[in-house]
């Protein structure tokens, strides 16, 4: 297996109609401060977010959502990730404003974590832990 880059690379995106981006800008700043490489692409369709994640070779895909549609579009994102073969190797996160009772359903879809009100330390450590787990399971799978 090729040597992985040392910096964690995070792709941050929003679904097509999301008009708020204060949250994603805030998180981008936090992750850069924590030494991660951040690619902020803005709004796109789920399938195109996955294409970009593959091109960018991202370890993590983070979605910010405020205006609903997280279940339908989150399912599309995961379907596309599975079809392109990156669902198991990539960490998927979702944060913003959505009904708390959707958290369980989002986890079932394949999101490693979802955030409603999280602080810097929580987000950073969650990403570090999830990426490490993906890497170790990939290595044990390869062995």
């Amino acid at each position: 297996m090729a040597q992985r880059k040392s910096k964690i690379k995070v792709l941050l995106a929003q679904f097509p109609l999301e008009s708020h981006n204060r949250g994603i800008i805030t998180v981008a700043g936090m992750l850069k401060d924590a030494g991660m490489e951040v690619v902020l692409i803005g709004n796109d369709l789920p399938e195109r977010i996955i294409e970009t994640a593959i091109q960018e070779d991202a370890d993590v895909v983070g979605i910010s959502t405020y205006c609903g549609g997280e279940l339908a579009l989150g399912a599309d994102l995961m379907k596309s990730a599975a079809e392109k073969g990156i669902k198991e190797s990539t960490v998927f996160l979702l944060g913003g404003i959505f009904p708390p009772h959707n958290m369980a359903r989002l986890k079932e879809l394949g999101f490693s974590a979802t955030f409603l009100a999280a602080d810097r330390a929580e987000i950073v450590s969650c990403i570090q832990k999830a990426v490490a787990e993906k890497k170790s399971s990939a290595q044990s799978g390869a062995a």
């Binding site: 097509p16 109609l17 008009s19 369709l45 205006c67 609903g68 549609g69």
Partner: peptide
């Protein structure tokens, strides 16, 4: 609604899951 604000028709792929929500 968001699709109307962002100028998409209700049947465009971008409007999926969000028609008439806010």
């Amino acid at each position: 609604d968001l699709a109307t604000v962002q100028m998409f028709d209700s049947d465009e792929p971008e409007a999926r899951g969000q028609v008439a929500t806010v």
